[in-house]
Amino acid sequence: MSNLEYSKVQPINNLIESFHRLPGIGPKMAQRLTYYLVRMSTKEAETLANAIRDLKEKVIYCSRCHNISDINPCSICQDTTRDSSIICVVEDPLDVVAIESATVFKGIYHVLHGVIAPMKGIGPEDIKLNDLVDRINQGNVKELVLATNPNVEGDATTAYIQDLVVSFDLKITRLARGLPMGGDLEYADFVTLSRAIEGRQVLG
């Protein structure tokens, strides 16, 4: 805990320090948020406090896909209209939100909660890979869509999963790489362009 004293009032100090620990929040922003809460009505502050409490008490990880949920199994795993033979493997729960917002994927998910990142001390044992193999072992899975982030760590994790499940009778796919919508070709980097050319599609 930081020993900095932001204010002579201890509760204010405590809250500033708590905000400061959150990602992306510096000491100034923490101070601004705290003083905003001081001016907030008691009812609004209670609503916020209850929302945080509920978050910690009611949000759980789905025992099947490891996505965050308030029920177990989560609503996606329970949804019988979805195709449970296609599993989309993502790095973290926010990726599920992003893919769901595209409304095109009708399969189910598996959240790894990280990627293989040796420089952060994260190896294959530290992410939910064994559970993925267990799910495949249970049968019924026909396709694995590897949707890790398009960077070195994401690609290495994809390669590791590919090696891990190679013995299963599975279709292994990964998200297409290429140019983003709205981007100019002239600004594309070497890797993106080369992957876009590799993954070109026949028209008509």
Partner: peptide, 14 residues
Amino acid sequence: KPTSKLGGFLEPMH
């Protein structure tokens, strides 16, 4: 962001 024009240039070992 996927639309960033710099992102792909800053990968390790480039």
